[in-house]
Amino acid sequence: MSRPALQVSALDGHYGDAQALAGVSLTIEAGSFVSVIGANGAGKTTLIRTIAGMLKPTRGEILYRGRRIDGLDPADICELGILQVPEGRLIFPSLTVAENLDIGGSLRRTRARRRQNMADVFEMFPRLAERRRQKAGTLSGGEQQMLAIGRCLMGEPDLVMLDEPSLGLAPNLADEMFEIVGWLHREGRTILLVEQNVEECLARSDRAYVMENGRIVLEGRGAELMADDRLRAAYLGL
């Protein structure tokens, strides 16, 4: 078995005195598609932020390709090839589309190839190319989401963590989003997808984890979980 790309062991995370993550353990094999699902407040975003280095875990460890990364600066973790498409997109509204992408590509390891990467992103998202000089704040929700993904791609990520990319998007756009995520996976990247939209997730995932109140309560292969009765009752309303 190839060494897992990401290994999270017994992670605890706190906001002040409130515990947000409790004993979270998960494994992401290189090149696989892993989903984390759960309701609002289950701790999914906290998990992603902790992996990204924005929050320091109070216990446990995170290994990437065998190296410990918990406790590292977020910027260092980006340089290792772990990038986010964060919840709420978090693009820079008063910067232009091109500038947003440029910043995404300004990591040390990708700086030299910025131009080429930006051309690739524009080819993939022609709508962004049309609006390259527009301020990002004027873009629609779907376009901002594309921008967030494009910005992430500029950093040449190996592991892409997406936090609710379909949130707030119309159904056809949400579908497009999942298509893109699928494409990212097929191109060889490791995907960690956090979602509330359970069906789409499970259908594409190699492995999935269900979180509740900061803990992992269920895990298994995507297809298995789709058939799991508890899950179906809780999340699919069946």
């Binding site: 924005m54 986010q84 964060p86 978090l90 820079f92 509204p93 008063s94 990591l107 950093g155």
Partner: peptide
């Protein structure tokens, strides 16, 4: 300049700046 853009980005969205690896 790069750092100038980084400054503007941080002013626009501090969390976003962290996400893209701005120190």
């Amino acid at each position: 300049t790069f750092i100038g853009r980084a400054i503007r980005a941080a002013a626009d969205n501090p969390l976003g700046a962290e996400v893209v690896g701005i120190r």
